[in-house]
Each structure stands twice: as C-alpha cells, then as structure tokens.
C-alpha cells in the first residue's frame, strides 16, 4: 500500500498516517463485504475451500498493521485530498482498490472508491462496492456541541399541531 498526497505538501507524515488509517478502515469494510460475498459464493457453489475468506483476512491484517496508530484516534487532520491504493488477495490473486478521501476542518467530508481490479469478478465486485459506498451521517446530541442555533424543518403552527393531536385521538377512540 502506498500513500499519495494530492493537494497538501505540508505535514506529510501526520496527514498520511490519518489518511492511511482511514483507508485502512475502508479497505477492511470492502474486504469484509468481499469476504462475505466470496463465502456466500463458496457455499452456493460448494467449491473447495480454496476461496476461503481467511486469505483475504490475512491481507487485511497486513494493511492495517502497517499503521500503529489507532484509526479512530483524533488527530490533526490537515485539509486536503488524500489518495491511497489498497491491495488484497482475491481468490484469483492480488487486486488493488483506490480510495480518495477529502478532509476539511479535520473531518472526512467525502470518500470516493476507485475500481482498480483487473479480473472480471473482482472488477464487478469493486464496481458494485464503489456504486453502493456512501458515507452516512450520524447525529450528535445538541448538548454535546457548542451551538448558537439549530436549523431544520420549521416548527409547525399551533393550529396544525392541534389538528394532528385531534386526528390521533379520533383514530384511537
């Protein structure tokens, strides 16, 4: 696995580590899906245990252990785009997967998965993964974050709320 910094030349080591750690997580996620799929495939086709997912886990291990940092640990994420290529062993042999992460104000704001596989099956799997890979948001409690205001849907009018309450009551009676 190698790292390449696209937009940021400073603080190379620190940023790369963070990027690497995150790429590590994504690669695990991908390998996880892959391993699961190949396992399913194995079961369905009852082939010999050559395509045992432990092969892929081993490669996952290699990817992650190159980095001693805890991937979830908070770091000084320098803004920029980070690209990394992860490799793993598919049942057919070595394959690569590209990941580009955008870091802004210390958090990952975008992630793009690039299909790099050469074998048809791996290519199909990676394409599927890239298409379905989306970073999902999570909620944080308002009292944990320093905020002045909150924006969402507008608070609904009293008349509207009263009507909803009334309809619910009617539905229950």
């Amino acid at each position: 696995m190698y790292m390449e910094e696209q937009t940021n030349q400073n603080n190379k080591t620190g940023s790369s580590k963070v990027g690497l750690a995150i790429v590590g997580i994504i690669v695990i996620a991908f390998i996880g899906i892959f391993a699961y799929q190949s396992q399913t495939m194995t079961q369905n086709t009852t082939t010999s245990p050559q395509s045992n997912p432990t092969t892929t886990s081993e490669s996952t291990g290699t990817n992650v252990t190159t980095n001693d940092e805890n991937p979830t640990q908070e770091g000084t994420y320098k803004d920029g785009k980070y690209t990394a290529v992860g490799n793993y062993t598919s049942p057919g042999g070595e394959e690569e997967l590209g990941v580009t992460l955008t870091v802004a104000s210390g958090v990952v704001t975008d992630a793009i998965v690039e299909v790099k596989a050469t074998r048809p099956i791996s290519k199909a799997r990676q394409t599927d993964f890239a298409a379905n890979y989306k970073t999902q948001v999570i909620g944080k409690n308002i009292d944990e974050i320093q905020l002045t205001k909150v924006s969402g849907s507008s608070l609904s009018p009293k008349g509207f709320n009263d009507a909803v309450t009334q309809i619910k009551a009617e539905a229950q009676s």
Binding site: K140, K149, V150, S151
Partner: peptide, 16 residues
C-alpha cells in the same frame, strides 16, 4: 455563528 443541522428523526440531535 454556529448553527446545527437538525437530525430529521431526532430533534435533540444534529448531523453537522
């Protein structure tokens, strides 16, 4: 001014 983006399923949370 810091403004939270309300979680659509939980008004006690923000997603950003």
């Amino acid at each position: 001014m810091r403004i939270g983006l309300e979680h659509p399923a939980n008004p006690k949370q923000v997603i950003g």
